[in-house]
Design a protein around this nucleic acid. Structure first.
Length: 486
RNA sequence: GUCCCCAUCGUCUAGAGGUUAGGACAUCGCCCUUUCAAGGCGGUAACACGGGUUCGAGUCCCGUUGGGGAUACCA
């Protein structure tokens, strides 16, 4: 059970397609990928779709899309577990033939009653091995009579040991498991049978999965051994919690990849943030690419305690990526938001300019696109509490009119515009800021944003003049809405 | 109920017996600045509790408390 991480590994991510890929799943996939990136080897994608009632093809597709979008690449698969069921049953039959498993004729009802009784006595229920040693003739007789049976694993009576990279050497007493079911009465394999069989067939060396599987592992280990197969090394990742320290739920916002995507989170940011939830790179840098993390990934630095998902930090990190990534790289992710905002027809050059101006000011792609909408509007909506102080200055319309006239005469680059505005201010004996703030409102309707002269230059001569004209008229009307046109 | 896992600032974490307990998000203040961000500088803020072991414990052991997981012919 040496922690041998020197050679290539074979890892797998095995989600159930029962819904959207949630953040816990992505993180598991990421750690699998990082180990594969670090050690070399193969990353297998396996879809555990054996619960037909809850799985469908669309969800399988969805999970692959979500993984791809996040930037996770697998080498083999996707393998559909549902297609391998005959193989699992065949392997279970081998155990039966080798007397490492046996037929059990107890009915669910009987067992249910026993379980209820055991609970009442204050203990846990283990299958009492009622059918563990039925004589061959008895088995034959019952089968003859058409009695249904399940196939149970003959659990060994020895301590179960395995290596968990997160928690160290694990040891469980034999009582911690019972003769669990391998094949249901309809002959279909159970989860435990399927996973172990697949992990053997796919030569998985390292099983990285959620902590909810930790208590399944004592069942899986003796099964590997019963098949005479090498037991993989495990890593059980702690769960991700919500702000209430309970299992992460929808109550506190997005929990799936598609939701974060729809909010305008970049895949790089999601990948980076998720990888840091339960693992630390051992250096103080936190903004790390997938490649860098792959290089320095070290399972010893996986954390054993559950982590609270911090949406604020994710958004901060997204802002960092938005600021540092060149526009060309984020552009493809922007398109759905541009469509949503009705900006698909916008002048591409101007769009690029204003996106550039605003991208370091937004935390999400959605925010970014929202902040850019005013540049493409005929009318800028003014907020009353923003314009109040401008309305209080009776001279302002005249000042702005003068500014508008001056702007009409200058070249539209930011230095020339700034010089022009300062000149107007000086001529009129006012501070530049008296002109700057209302101009910003006239052009954007907002009180924040990029440097004013960048904004004016991006807006262009015509639009600037028009918006200033509107604002001057608005101020002259005393803030009233324009008269309706006939 | 039983079994298992976990426990450092509000949150993510560093810390492998001797540290002024470090960083990041959030928060507060200052600087920069026409504004908003970004950035820079600084502040508030943590070893759950109780026993051991040790010259010395955030670090090792036991217990308590708290949180989580598992207890299926689900995966």
């Amino acid at each position: 059970m040496a922690n041998d991480l020197t050679g290539p590994v074979r890892v797998r991510f095995a989600p159930s397609p029962t819904g959207f890929l949630h953040v816990g799943g992505v993180r598991t996939a990421i750690y699998n990928e990082l180990l594969r990136l670090h050690c070399g080897g193969v990353f297998v994608l396996r879809i555990e779709d054996t619960d037909k009632a809850r799985s469908d093809e669309a969800m399988t597709r969805q999970i692959q899309d979500a993984l791809s979008w996040t930037g996770i690449r697998w080498d083999e698969g996707p393998f559909l577990q549902s297609e391998r069921l005959p193989r699992h049953a065949e392997r279970a039959a081998e155990l039966l033939a080798a007397d490492k498993a046996y037929r059990c004729f107890c009915t669910s009802e009987e067992l249910e009653a026993q379980r209820a009784e055991a609970q009442k006595q204050g203990g846990s229920f283990r299958y009492p091995r009622t059918c563990a040693h039925l004589p061959a003739e008895e088995i034959a007789r019952r089968m003859e009579a058409g009695q249904t049976f399940v196939v149970r694993f003959r659990a060994p009576d020895a301590n179960i040991q395995f290596l968990d990279l997160v928690r160290g050497d694990m040891e469980f007493p034999p009582e911690s498991i019972d003769d669990f079911i391998l094949l249901r009465s309809d002959g279909s394999p159970t989860y435990h049978m399927s996973v172990v069989c697949d992990d053997i067939d796919m030569s998985i060396t390292h099983v990285i999965r959620g902590e909810d599987h930790l208590s399944n592992t004592p069942k899986h280990v003796p099964l590997f051994q019963a098949f005479g197969s090498a037991v993989p090394t495990f890593a059980h990742l702690p769960l991700i919690l919500g702000p209430d320290k309970k299992r992460l739920s929808k109550r506190f916002g997005a929990t799936s990849v598609e939701e974060f995507r729809a909010e305008g989170v970049l895949p790089q940011a999601l990948y980076n943030y998720m990888s840091l939830l339960g693992w630390s790179p051992g250096e103080e840098r936190e903004i790390l690419s997938r490649e860098e993390m792959g290089r320095i990934f070290d399972v010893d630095r996986l954390n054993a305690s559950a982590a609270v998902f911090d949406r604020e930090k994710l958004l901060w990190m997204n802002g960092q990526y938005l600021t540092s990534l060149p526009l060309g790289e984020i552009r493809p992710h922007l398109d759905p938001f541009l469509v949503e905002a009705g900006l698909t027809g916008a002048d591409p050059a101007r769009l690029a300019t204003v996106l550039e101006l605003h991208k370091s000011r937004a935390r999400t792609l959605r925010e970014l696109v929202q902040s850019v909408i005013p540049y493409f509007r005929d009318e800028i909506p003014y907020e009353a509490d923003l314009t109040k102080k401008f309305l209080a200055d009776p001279d302002l319309p005249v000042h702005l009119a003068a500014l508008r006239d001056r702007f009409a005469e200058v070249e539209f680059d930011k230095d020339a515009l700034e010089a022009a505005l300062r000149a107007v201010a000086e001529e009129r004996g006012i501070k530049p800021s008296v002109l700057i703030h209302p101009t910003r409102t006239a052009l954007s309707g907002a009180n924040g944003g990029p440097p004013l002269f960048d904004l004016v230059a991006a807006m262009g001569k015509e639009e600037t003049s028009r918006h200033l004209g509107h604002f001057i008229a608005y101020l002259r009307r005393g803030g009233a809405l324009p008269e309706p046109q006939d």
